[in-house]
């Protein structure tokens, strides 16, 4: 029987990453600033790092448990979708 430790060993220290392409660096930066402020809930040992480079928003996760990783990725995708919808409906960004 697999115990909790087995899953832990498989996943630990491995990261999952996601790149999201935006029409321009401006939109990527807006998404980055909208999505970064809220910290990941501390329980479960998941960390999430966001970076915006050019028109790409990159996310990298580390997690000690697959379950926690799934929750974190799932909620990030929900948040990202809401930001994108807001951009489509209330954008494009005004000239800086």
């Amino acid at each position: 029987m697999l115990d909790g430790g087995t899953e832990y060993d498989i996943i630990r220290d491995k990261f999952r990453a996601l790149d999201v392409a935006f029409p321009s660096a401006r939109e990527a930066s807006i998404a980055f600033q909208s999505l970064s402020p809220d910290r990941e809930p501390r329980r479960g040992g998941a960390t999430k790092e966001l970076h915006a480079a050019g028109s790409t928003l990159s996310v990298r996760w580390t997690a000690e448990e697959a379950r926690i990783l799934r929750v974190s990725v799932g909620s990030f995708l929900d948040h990202l979708a809401l930001v994108l919808e807001t951009m489509i409906e209330f954008g494009p960004p005004v000239a800086q």
Binding site: I30, S34, H79, V83, T86, F90, Q96
Partner: peptide
């Protein structure tokens, strides 16, 4: 969080 995401995004879009 849901509401803050939209507020942050429109604040930036509208400058």
């Amino acid at each position: 969080v849901t509401v803050a995401l939209v507020a942050r995004t429109v604040a930036q879009l509208w400058g």
